[in-house]
Simulated scan of single mutants.
Amino acid sequence: MVQTYYEAINWNSIEDAIDKATWEKLTEQFWLDTRIPLSNDLDDWRGLNTAEKTVVNHVFGGLTLLDTLQSQDGIDQLRRDIRTPQELAVFNNIQFMESVHAKSYSSIFSTLCTSEEITEIFTWTNHNEYLQRKAEIVNSIYQTGTPLEKKVASVFLETFLFYSGFYTPLYYLGNNKLANVAEIIKLIIRDESVHGTYIGYKFQLGFNELDAAAQSQFKDWLYNLLYDLYDNEEKYTAALYDQVGWTEDVKTFLRYNANKALMNLGQDPLFPDTADDVNPIVMNGLSTGTANHDFFSQVGNGYLLGHVAAMKTSDYEIGRQK
């Protein structure tokens, strides 16, 4: 018998059922920005004042940068520490969809903005002090951290740091504006929900293998990182939202999602904020379902696949088999 040089992936021999369940969920949720009729939002866009347009543009510029970081560096680093071959396949899917997310914002820009405005957006994005600091903190962990530290950075990015930007389109959706722009954001949120819970689950597998002393030391590092990120995020939020008066509401939303990130990692919540404290208009928009679609063409404001619900945190309970 010839000695094995390279092994084929065998999806009929599954070591971790969560890998298969996540692959199926992500492929069911597949979407592309080109099928969302963004031009239908032009009338709403023209009705926004200058400050509101600036907030929307800069929010989406910041989200573009974070999705670029996640697609180009973050997932690539996570792929190096896999437990199973199926896990690598899941990360391949996640990495591609992060690229789809990053491109989606450019589709929004090209629909709503002039070329001069697009140039301004990316100039602001590439030089904003707090946005660049956020990227630096996360990417330094991706490049030099341990496998567990990288997973923490990824979950904090996807379940916490994105949400200072997600607040804006969800707020407008709740006020019956920019519905198609919000449709893209809801599709992105649906993806990130799965990404965050899956990576958090993989973190918990490794964390639970540590002894008590190592776990305690790691938790100190984890919460210190969250404090650093939240301190920077407060400043970033103020820089974005002071001009429209939303800063305190967005901070509440951030704290709520920071707790969700900690829960994905199997850790205790840090902040007192709950869903009841978040602006109810935004919480209603946070539902991961998408808008009604045309049953004949299966497009319109959403996909037929848009009715696939995001995986629940309980789906990732360690030891639970499907």
Results as ranks from 00 to 15, higher is better:
127 H>Q: 15
165 G>R: 01
284 N>S: 10
214 A>D: 10
267 Q>L: 03
72 Q>N: 12
220 D>F: 04
203 F>Y: 13
152 V>D: 00
152 V>H: 05
70 Q>Y: 04
102 A>V: 07
194 V>A: 09
277 D>M: 04
224 N>P: 03
54 T>G: 02
257 N>W: 03
93 N>I: 12
47 G>M: 11
313 T>F: 01
200 G>Q: 03
91 F>K: 07
76 D>K: 10
298 Q>A: 14
4 T>S: 11
176 N>Y: 02
40 N>V: 05
320 R>L: 04
201 Y>K: 05
66 L>C: 05
99 S>K: 10
304 L>V: 09
187 L>I: 06
63 L>G: 05
84 T>D: 07
255 R>M: 13
6 Y>D: 10
175 N>E: 09
39 S>Q: 14
238 A>Y: 04
118 I>A: 06
268 D>A: 15
234 E>T: 15
245 G>F: 00
271 F>D: 12
132 Q>L: 15
239 A>G: 10
123 T>H: 12
284 N>K: 11
2 V>H: 12
247 T>E: 01
117 E>L: 05
34 T>G: 13
257 N>K: 15
138 V>Q: 02
53 K>E: 02
247 T>V: 03
272 P>E: 10
173 L>P: 04
125 T>N: 08
227 Y>P: 00
14 I>W: 00
293 H>R: 09
245 G>R: 02
77 Q>S: 13
173 L>M: 05
286 L>P: 00
241 Y>A: 01
118 I>M: 12
108 I>K: 08
50 T>D: 14
174 G>L: 01
309 A>G: 12
239 A>W: 03
183 E>G: 09
106 S>W: 07
12 N>D: 10
81 D>K: 08
222 L>Q: 14
300 G>N: 10
89 A>T: 13
25 K>Q: 14
3 Q>L: 11
260 K>W: 02
288 T>G: 01
242 D>G: 01
86 Q>P: 00
234 E>K: 15
236 Y>I: 03
129 E>F: 15
150 K>P: 10
59 V>P: 00
191 D>G: 09
159 T>V: 08
304 L>G: 08
181 V>W: 00
242 D>E: 11
183 E>W: 01
197 T>D: 08
215 Q>Y: 02
172 Y>I: 03
245 G>W: 01
60 F>T: 12
14 I>V: 15
56 V>W: 00
322 K>Q: 13
13 S>R: 14
152 V>A: 04
265 L>P: 07
89 A>G: 14
174 G>C: 02
39 S>G: 11
107 S>T: 14
22 T>I: 07
